[in-house]
């Protein structure tokens, strides 16, 4: 359990070598070993969604994933979402425009979920967005604005695709 092993994680397109114990979660590996603290810990039990990131393009809870399980797979965290020149992703822009956050602690998880929610084709209506964003708790209660932001981003991404 406790002997650290070498591991290479591909985070935001970059291979990162580190030594972690088999029991180390992906969340703790990112936060405590790689200084990628954008992904947040809210519960460590898969109950809040704050640690949501993408593994091979799908939303995953980093607190319920062992770092070892993510070896060799593409991990995208909030830090890797904006363009290389720093241009915010459409979802990030929409969160700012709609004031879809207050304290901002749940926000990285919300944004990673929202990107996936749109990609999965679950942003068709407000009711659908509410359902497919229900795994990300926001105690500040930004939910109505999160729904508006997902709708706004989905429209913008659609326009981008058409253009």
């Amino acid at each position: 359990m406790s002997t650290p092993r070498p591991l290479t994680l591909i985070v935001n397109g970059e291979p990162r070598a580190l030594q972690v114990e088999p029991r180390t979660t992906l969340l703790d590996a990112l936060r405590e070993r790689l200084d990628l603290t954008g992904t947040k810990k809210g519960c460590d039990h898969g109950q809040c969604g704050a640690c949501t990131l993408h593994v091979d393009g799908e939303r995953v809870l980093a607190c319920l994933t062992l770092a070892q399980q993510a070896e060799g797979r593409r991990i995208t965290t909030i830090e890797g979402l904006a363009g290389p020149d720093g241009t915010l992703h459409a979802v990030q822009k929409a969160f700012l425009a709609e004031d879809a956050f207050q304290c901002g602690y749940c926000t990285p998880g919300q944004i990673m979920s929202a990107v996936a929610c749109i990609r999965e084709g679950h942003a068709g209506s407000a009711a659908e967005i509410r359902e497919f964003m229900a795994g990300n708790l926001c105690r500040c209660g930004a939910y109505p604005h999160i729904v508006a932001a997902v709708q706004r981003a989905a429209r913008a991404l659609e326009q981008e695709t058409l253009a």
Binding site: I78, Q92, G104, T107
Partner: peptide
């Protein structure tokens, strides 16, 4: 106006207390 501390929170660069290196 939109939040002035917003972009840092949206990019994941806003370091909360437990994020401090």
């Amino acid at each position: 106006l939109a939040r002035l501390d917003g972009v840092a929170k949206l990019e994941g660069s806003a370091r909360f207390a437990l994020d401090q290196p």
